[in-house]
Design a binder for these strands. Structure first.
Length: 635
DNA sequence: GATTACTCGAAAGAACCTGC
DNA sequence: GCAGGTTCTTTCGAGTAATC
C-alpha cells in the first residue's frame, strides 16, 4: 500500500517562498539569514496561523535569526514560535493593542505576569517572559552587527528590549522550579517503595500473557488440523493468584453464524458461503473472555473483569481510541474510570493508545469487525498478538529503564547492529553493552545491561521475527527514526531499530502506552492519596533514588550511570524519599541520645576508589540476579 | 454517509547544560 | 553555586484517510 506523504514532505525546498505574500520581503532577504534552512513547520505556521497579525514580521524575523543566525535547535524555536504567537493573540486582544508599535514590554509584560484574571499558569507566564527576553537579545545582537543603514530597516522589527531592572523584578522562575521539584519528589516517593515489586510483577504478567498465547496457539492448531471447530471453549490454570481462566476461540464466520439473528441476512449469507469479508484468506481467530474463577475462593463464580490483570481495560473499552468513542455519557464514564487511576480528566485521555495499528489495538482490517462484534458478544473480545507485542515491548522498556536509568530517547535508539549492541568481558563476566547518544552530548556513551535485559531484547527480536514472518537469521527491517521526535534529526537514515512494529519506529507515546498497559492496576499513591501515573522519566528518578538510598551507590557514581555531567542535577533525582527521611530522623535522634561527642572521620575517595566503586555499581546495576531492589520471582 | 483509525501539529511540562 | 539559557518529553485534539 503506498504510504501517505506527510505534510512536511509536501513542502519542497524553498518553501519560504510561501511567505512572500505574508511577510515583508526584506525579512526574507535579510543579510546572513538563510531561509532555505528554515524548517518547513515554522514556514507553515507563520503562513497559516500568524499571517495577518500585528506581530507577523517581528515573529518571522525572530524565526530567521534564531534558526539561521543564533542556530538554536529547531524544536526550541518551534515551541517558542507557537508559544509566543498564542500569548500575543491573547494579550493583544486583552489589552486592546492594534499594531506592534503599541506593544510595550515595560508596561504589558508586568501587567500580564501579574494579571490575576488570566488563567495561564506561573510557568506559562514565566516561559513567555524568558522567550521574549532571550529572543529580543538574539535579535538585538543580529541587528547591531548589520551596517548602519540596514540597522534602521531591520531595527523596526526587533522586539523592544526589556530593561534589566524590570526583568529581575518579574523573574519567578525559582518558584516554578521549586514547584516542579516538589511534584517530582512526591511522585518519586510514591513509586520508590514499590520498585522491586513493580519489576517482579511486570515479569510475571509477561509470563501470563505468554502462557495465554501458547494455549491459544494450541487451540488454533486443533482447529486448523480439523480436530475441532469454532467456537472452541477452553480453559487453563494460572498460579498468581490461583485461578482457572475460561475463554472461547471464534473466527469471523463462526461468530456471525452463531449470532445470525443480530446480523443482516446479507452478512449471514456471505458468512455461510465464505465470500468477501469471510473468504478463507481473510479469516481471523479471536477470543471471547468467559471469565476466571478463583481456585481458593470459588464463591464469586466466573468474573470477566478479573481476566488476568486487564479484564477491566477490555470491558470498559479503554484500548486505543476506545476512551474517546461512544455516546457522551459513555465517554464520560470511561474518562471517569481512567481518572480513578490517576489519569487527567480535564482533557480526554487515551493512556493505552500506541498509535500503531496492531499494537495494543486491533489491526486496521479487523478493528471494525471486532468493534461491531463486541456489541453482540457476551464477554470482552480480544486478539492476543497485539497485547503480547505490547507487553513484550513494555517489559523490555521497563527493564531497561529500571536497570540503567536511561531516558526515553536513549531507549528508542537501541538497534540490532554490532555498533550499538555488543558484548565485552568486564572483570571475568561477559556483559552486554549498548552504545547510545545521551541527551545534550555529541559523543556516544555506553550503557551496561544485564542478562535479563538482554533476554528481554531477544524476546522482542523473536516477537518481531514472528510479526514480520522472518526466517531465522534474517534481519528485522531497517526503518526511519520516529519522525515526530524532537531529536529525530540526530538519527538520519534507516536502521533495524529494536522498538519498531508494523514497519515503523515506535514513538515515545507508544512505549508509554505499552508500559502503562503492562503495569495497569498497580497502585502508586502519594502521601495525600493521589494516584501517580507511570511514565518513563519517573522510572529514571526512581532508579536513581533507589540505587543511591537502597543500594548505597555514591552520588558521583549515580551521575556517571545516568550520564549526567553535573552531580547537582543528580542530586535532584536522588533526593531521599520522605519515609526514609522520617526513619533517618528517628535513628539520628536515638544516636544523639546515646553517642554524644562521637564524630566520624571525613572520608575522601581517591580516583582508584572511585573507579572500583563504579565497577562495583555496574556489576550490581542491570542484572536480575543481583538487581537493585531485590530478586524477581517469575512464576 | 457514518464511523473508526491514524497522523501529526501544537503546546505544556520537565530536564539539564553552560558560563560566570 | 547560581542564573541564564537550551533541549527533550508528554499530552491532547483537529484533520483526514480507510472501512463498512
Amino acid at each position: 500500500m503506498p504510504r501517505r506523504r506527510t505534510n512536511l514532505e509536501r513542502l519542497q525546498v524553498g518553501a519560504w517562498r510561501e511567505l512572500l505574500d505574508v511577510v515583508d520581503v526584506r525579512i526574507l532577504q535579510a543579510p546572513s539569514l538563510d531561509w532555505d534552512q528554515v524548517d518547513g513547520r515554522a514556514i507553515r505556521y507563520l503562513k497559516e496561523s500568524v499571517a495577518g497579525t500585528a506581530w507577523i514580521n517581528p515573529l518571522a524575523l525572530m524565526v530567521g535569526v534564531l534558526l539561521t543566525s543564533a542556530r538554536l535547535n529547531v524544536a526550541t524555536v518551534l515551541s517558542r514560535l507557537y508559544g509566543m504567537h498564542v500569548r500575543w493573540q491573547d494579550l493583544f486582544a486583552r489589552y486592546q493593542l492594534r499594531t506592534f508599535a503599541d506593544w510595550d514590554p515595560c508596561e504589558h509584560l508586568p501587567r500580564y505576569l501579574n494579571d490575576e484574571v488570566c488563567a495561564d499558569s506561573v510557568k506559562t507566564k514565566q516561559d513567555f517572559l524568558f522567550w521574549y527576553r532571550s529572543s529580543a537579545d538574539h535579535m538585538h545582537d543580529y541587528v547591531r552587527a548589520l551596517p548602519a543603514d540596514l540597522q534602521a530597516i531591520y531595527g523596526q522589527w526587533e522586539f523592544p528590549l526589556l530593561p534589566r531592572g524590570i526583568d529581575h523584578q518579574l523573574d519567578r522562575m525559582a518558584e516554578v522550579i521549586e514547584d516542579q521539584r516538589h511534584r517530582r519528589q512526591v511522585e518519586t516517593d510514591a513509586l520508590t517503595p514499590h520498585f522491586a515489586k513493580l519489576r517482579g510483577e511486570a515479569h510475571l504478567r509477561w509470563n501470563q500473557l505468554f502462557r495465554l498465547r501458547t494455549k491459544v496457539g494450541e487451540v488454533i492448531a486443533l482447529v486448523t488440523s480439523g480436530q475441532a471447530s469454532c467456537p472452541v471453549a477452553f480453559s487453563y490454570e494460572e498460579t498468581h493468584p490461583r485461578q482457572r481462566v475460561h475463554a472461547r476461540l471464534w473466527d469471523r464466520r463462526s461468530f456471525v453464524l452463531a449470532h445470525a439473528d443480530q446480523y443482516s441476512r446479507a452478512t449471514g449469507w456471505e458468512a455461510r458461503r465464505q465470500i468477501r469479508a469471510f473468504r478463507p484468506g481473510n479469516n481471523t481467530y479471536f477470543l471471547e473472555v468467559v471469565g476466571t474463577e478463583l481456585l481458593d475462593d470459588p464463591s464469586p463464580g466466573l468474573m470477566s473483569e478479573q481476566f488476568l490483570w486487564f479484564g477491566d481495560v477490555l470491558r470498559y473499552d479503554l484500548l486505543s481510541e476506545g476512551p474517546c468513542l461512544g455516546t457522551p455519557e459513555e465517554v464520560k464514564r470511561k474518562q471517569a474510570y481512567l481518572h480513578s487511576w490517576g489519569y487527567e480528566i480535564e482533557r480526554r485521555c487515551k493512556p493505552f493508545s500506541s498509535g500503531i495499528a496492531g499494537l495494543l489495538a486491533w489491526p486496521f482490517e479487523q478493528a471494525n469487525f471486532l468493534r461491531k462484534a463486541q456489541a453482540r458478544a457476551q464477554g470482552p473480545l480480544l486478539l492476543v498478538e497485539p497485547l503480547f507485542a505490547a507487553v513484550t515491548f513494555g517489559l523490555a522498556a521497563l527493564d531497561f529503564f529500571t536497570t540503567t536509568g536511561a531516558r526515553m530517547n536513549e531507549l528508542l535508539q537501541v538497534r540490532l547492529t554490532a555498533d550499538c549492541l555488543y558484548t565485552m568481558v568486564v572483570e571475568g563476566t561477559q556483559r552486554l553493552l549498548v552504545r547510545l547518544l545521551p541527551k545534550g552530548m555529541t559523543r556516544l556513551a555506553e550503557y551496561v545491561v544485564g542478562p535479563e535485559t538482554r533476554r528481554h531484547f531477544e524476546r522482542v527480536a523473536l516477537m518481531l521475527q514472528d510479526h514480520y514472518g522472518l526466517r531465522p537469521g534474517e534481519p528485522v527491517p531497517a526503518v526511519a527514526f520516529c519522525k515526530h521526535h524532537g531529536r529525530a534529526a540526530l538519527f538520519p537514515g534507516h536502521h533495524p531499530y529494536l522498538f519498531q512494529y508494523g514497519g515503523q519506529h515506535l514513538s515515545p507515546s507508544a512505549i508509554t502506552a505499552c508500559l502503562r498497559f503492562l503495569c495497569h492496576g498497580m497502585v502508586f499513591e502519594t502521601v495525600e492519596g493521589k494516584a501517580v501515573v507511570l511514565k518513563a522519566h519517573l522510572l529514571r528518578h526512581v532508579f536513581a533514588t533507589h540505587i543511591h538510598h537502597v543500594e548505597q551507590v555514591p552520588l558521583d557514581i549515580v551521575a556517571v550511570l545516568l550520564h549526567q555531567k553535573n552531580t547537582r542535577v543528580t542530586g535532584y533525582y536522588a533526593a531521599p524519599p520522605w519515609h526514609q527521611v522520617l526513619t533517618s530522623a528517628n535513628v539520628i535522634l536515638d544516636r544523639f541520645a546515646t553517642h554524644l561527642g562521637s564524630l566520624d572521620e571525613a572520608f575522601v575517595r581517591a580516583p582508584a576508589e572511585l573507579q572500583r566503586q563504579y565497577e562495583e555499581a555496574k556489576e550490581r546495576v542491570g542484572t536480575l540476579a543481583k538487581v537493585p531492589g531485590g530478586d524477581c520471582t517469575c512464576l
